[in-house]
Simulated scan of single mutants.
Amino acid sequence: MLPYAKRLNIDYVWVHGAATVLEATFAHSLNMIGTSVLVVEMGVGMRMTKEYCKQLVDGIFVEMKDLGMWQGEVITPKDPLIFTDGEVHYLNAGYAGIFLPTVEHWTNVKKGDKIGEILDPLESVVKEELYSECDGILFTLREYPVVSEGSLIGRILERQA
């Protein structure tokens, strides 16, 4: 799938071993009939932007031209970052509450930078402050504010010194 991913005009490719592909997903159904699948995420859960959709459509036309399905002009796709599981750090909630980020998605962070806070809405207190464990790029950031203990808050691609 990596050659396809490189032509699709995406920002990054995270090659990782998923334990399972959920049965209720379109990706699972395609895998079951022998069709290779590339899942595209936009880095912030459940958020789609017009800009990123246009970026992907431009990449789809590149792929269609390579397959002989499109004769029109196409862009030169971006050269995506490519990384693997060992380079990714997960930020998880230690408490239930309301997550308020203090940084933006797709931000360079340094070890010790504050990523956000989890607030207890009933007591009006900060239950937890979340900090980066490494230098890198915050490539996933939670959009929904309500979190449970253990909820994924973000992922950081570690940059080696």
Rank of each mutant, 00 (worst) to 15 (best):
L30K: 01
H105G: 08
D79S: 10
G72Y: 05
E104P: 01
T107N: 01
G45T: 13
H89C: 04
N108I: 10
I118M: 08
M1G: 12
V15T: 14
K127S: 14
L152A: 03
N9C: 10
R142P: 01
I118Q: 04
R7L: 15
T25V: 04
D135P: 11
S148F: 08
N9S: 11
V40Q: 09
A24Q: 03
A93H: 00
L157T: 02
S29I: 04
L119R: 13
L141Q: 01
N31T: 08
P145I: 07
E117Y: 06
L81E: 01
H28I: 03
V39H: 11
L22P: 07
V44P: 02
Y131K: 15
M69G: 01
E117N: 09
G150C: 07
S148M: 05
L157K: 09
E133Y: 13
G112W: 04
G112T: 06
T107G: 00
E87V: 01
V109Y: 02
V37M: 07
M32K: 11
A96D: 04
F83Q: 00
V125N: 11
N31W: 00
L141F: 09
T76Q: 07
A18S: 14
L152S: 03
T35H: 04
I98P: 01
L8H: 10
G150F: 02
I156L: 00
R47T: 15
C53H: 14
E128R: 10
G136H: 09
I115A: 08
G17N: 15
P101I: 02
G97T: 03
E23M: 03
P3C: 04
D79G: 06
H28C: 06
G97H: 01
Q71Y: 09
I118K: 01
D85T: 09
D113Q: 00
R159E: 08
G116S: 03
R7E: 14
G94Q: 03
A19G: 12
F61D: 02
N31M: 07
C134N: 13
A19V: 11
E51W: 12
V126H: 07
H16Q: 12
V40W: 02
T35K: 11
T140M: 14
V39E: 13
L157C: 05
D135H: 15
I98L: 07
M46I: 10
H28N: 11
H16N: 14
R47L: 15
D11C: 09
L138C: 10
E158V: 03
Y52M: 15
L100K: 06
L81V: 08
E23L: 06
W70C: 05
V37C: 11
D135A: 10
D85H: 06
